[in-house]
Design a protein around this nucleic acid. Structure first.
Lengths: 234, 234
DNA sequence: TGTACATCAGTGAACGCGCGTTCACTGATGTAC
DNA sequence: TGTACATCAGTGAACGCGCGTTCACTGATGTAC
């Protein structure tokens, strides 16, 4: 009755779409994104290959949709972690959980790019949403450390205009911040966010690709030390 | 005449092998590793498909060989940078140059793992060689900073037995160091090497996959700040 | 220097496979009167 | 409540493609005597 009420056909349609995607994820987990096959998905669903063309324009459309969903999922995970108020280390833990839950989903977004393929344009917006969340948390953590314990006396404490750039990177970021266009974060927060982001990916991409197996140590211990240590560490 | 002298046939053979590999790299750069095709390589060399089986056991063998070469190439690059005496930041620059020279070569080693495929066993040795070089440079940088400027008075300065583990990660690494089995580096150096390694990969994997394009800043400035900054920074 | 033989690079045909995608069509489900 | 029509999910056959790989074979190159 309401405008959003779905007809039975629409409900069925979205359900089948969801099932197709679910099987697609299974396949990606099993054989990687390059091993995704429409015919194989159809067979698993008990239908013939061409039937899938009722639901997706083709193989590329399906992959595009999966990429979109993966981005969305990470953005939501990030937002939830930020809301939980567990700070940067909470973001880090959430991201690791998200990545370990389905490594191929991580790789679909952040892994080896397929030379021909280009991600859909709207993922840029989602990517910036993710960075905005990260910036929010960085900014909160930044001021949380210094202000009301007045007179602590660090030279870089918060002044109302925000501190001036402290080095070449911060100066550069102050002028090149399209990725944070709407965000009021000062340069040293931009820097902190970027560093945290890249370091997260460093540990995760190596761990997920299996480059720590056989080295002997527990990746989780490394992760904890890198992302839940003292705030000032990096 | 000498034992190592190659017969004309052997020379020809190694040359053709090299040409096959060269074309394979071209293909990987163009279409990614999953797009590598024996028949296409043969066609580019002006020969028929089955001819390649004189030189490689098959597609998988060829890829394995490329992976091996990529590892070897990085190990050599690292060793050369270490010998140059430019320290950790020299290693970082060398690695970035190596990666940018052929991103798909980087991804063949450190990119999305193909679920079925397993790297040849001897790459483990090369991987450890790379870590050993990194540890050497970390160790040198570590002592270089503190010793002869005696009385600098940092609590963590070098004592002859090496300092005790400073936190959970260092304690863990002290007991789980198969990756550095033969290396005398103390825990805090192991930690430093691991952190540097993961951070390198963080920036590089994001940069090479194109996740910085459109963000506005210059990846090189970020890289320089992360890896050529003050020694103590992270 | 010349002959007889072994080695080995490369060919061409063929096998079987799975892929994405198109097309004309059937049959069930929903809608309008 | 019943009939007439439109919508749309799904089928089955077919197209063309490129793939890795095998096999029996040709012909050139190298080796031994």
């Amino acid at each position: 009755m309401a405008a959003g009420a779905a007809s039975p056909r629409e409900r069925y349609r979205t359900q089948v779409r969801a099932e197709i995607k679910a099987r697609a994820w299974d396949q990606i987990a099993t054989a990687g994104a390059s091993g995704l096959s429409l015919n194989a998905i159809a067979k698993e669903l008990g239908m013939s290959g061409p039937a899938l063309y009722r639901y997706f324009g083709g193989r590329d459309d399906l992959i595009t949709e999966l990429v979109r969903d993966a981005y969305r999922s990470l953005a939501d995970t990030f937002a939830a972690a930020a809301d939980a108020g567990t700070g940067l280390s909470g973001l880090a833990r959430a991201m690791r959980r998200w990545a370990l839950a389905d490594p191929q989903r991580y790789f679909l977004v952040y892994g080896t790019p397929v030379p021909g393929y280009r991600a859909p344009d709207d993922t840029t917006a989602t990517a910036r949403e993710i960075m905005a969340t990260l910036l929010d948390v960085c900014a909160a953590e930044d001021t949380a450390g210094t202000p009301e314990a007045a007179g602590a006396g660090t030279a870089e404490a918060a002044q109302e205009g925000g501190p001036a750039p402290a080095d070449a990177l911060e100066a550069h970021l102050a002028d090149h911040r399209q990725w944070a266009a709407e965000h009021p974060a000062p340069p040293h927060v931009l820097r902190r966010a970027l560093a945290y982001w890249t370091r997260l990916h460093g540990v995760l991409s190596l761990e997920l690709a299996g480059h720590f197996t056989g080295m002997g140590f527990d990746p989780e211990v490394l992760f904890t030390a890198e992302f839940e240590g003292l705030r000032g560490r990096g």
